[in-house]
């Protein structure tokens, strides 16, 4: 199918992009990698008056360190994220989960920022950034502001971004293996291409065989990505062994409100969340 007509702007700086968004009248869509937006336009599920292509803004790409934070430009592609040495060293969970996004061609075009701003609860990266306690930096006419991942995802396909704001970078606290961190992203889906029925992003910090800290993000367990807080709390101080982890994982679906679709009922999703959380935490806890 074929998109409806739209006007097109291709700013070359963040400032220009923000100005373009601020000046825009009618419905505006930001085009990042386009791997979610273009199918939506082709199916005529959206009719923007203006598409702002941020693909030619160099400052939005790349990965850098900033003290104890890792900073990833919003337009860094999935492919670049997977292969970036800094990401692999300090945010291994993100690299592992990003390899599960879409397929190689999609990962060449799709971007971290685009995926987060699209805020589909079935996509993998929102829950991952949530589990990493990430922060998202938005640029707007009034300057920049930092939004914690917990506050960023507000509803199904909705974020805290204002219409004239642009997501410019993602800041992640470094979590290195040397500091005892293990991680695992457990994605459960029916075919390689399909969305996660449920996904579990687990970060586990260990000290001497015991779990000292854990952060667990859940994919597709509600209208936004959520943290499995009850399990996180139950894991603190637990031995990194199957039985205590399984007990803690029993609470993984507490407080979630998963949706129903052809592949899964809410009840099945809750069950999967418990099973997959156990597996993800154990895999993370056993990581060398």
């Amino acid at each position: 199918m074929i998109p409806a007509a739209f006007d097109y702007a291709r700013p070359e700086t963040v400032d220009e992009a923000v100005r373009t968004l601020a000046d825009a009248r009618g419905e505006t869509k930001v085009l990042a990698g386009g791997q979610s937006l273009l199918p939506i336009l082709r199916l005529r599920l959206a009719f923007p008056d203006l598409v702002v292509d941020i693909g030619r803004i160099p400052e939005l790409r790349g990965v850098r360190e900033d003290g104890d934070k890792l900073v990833i430009g919003a337009m860094t592609t999935h492919h670049a994220v997977i292969h970036d040495p800094l990401v692999r060293q300090y945010a291994g969970l993100l690299a592992e989960a990003t390899a599960e996004v879409g397929d190689p061609a999609v990962r060449h075009r799709g971007t971290l920022g685009g995926s987060l701003a699209h805020a589909d609860p079935a996509s993998d990266l929102p829950a991952v950034v949530l589990a990493l306690d990430g922060e998202l930096v938005a640029a707007g006419p009034q300057g920049r502001r930092t939004i914690p991942a917990r506050d960023f995802f507000t509803d199904y396909l909705q974020t805290a971004l204002e219409p004239d704001e642009l997501l410019v970078e993602v800041r992640l606290p470094k979590t290195a293996a040397a500091d005892g961190w293990g991680f695992h992203y457990e994605k459960f889906h029916r075919v390689a291409q399909s969305w996660a029925i449920v996904g579990v992003a687990a970060m586990v910090r260990r000290d001497d065989g015991r779990i000292t800290e854990s952060r667990i993000g859940l994919t597709n367990m509600g209208t936004t990505p959520v943290r499995a807080e009850a399990t996180e709390a139950a894991l603190v101080g637990a031995a990194a062994e199957p039985d205590p982890v399984a007990r803690a994982a029993e609470a993984a679906a507490d407080g979630t409100h998963p949706s129903s679709d052809v592949s899964a009922s809410p009840e099945y999703r809750e069950h999967l969340a418990r099973v997959l959380t156990r597996r993800a935490v154990l895999a993370a806890a056993r990581m060398e």
Binding site: P39, R190, V191, A192, Q193, S194, V262
Partner: peptide
Amino acid sequence: ADYLVPGA
């Protein structure tokens, strides 16, 4: 995207 044709 909804009808699951299997891939490799």
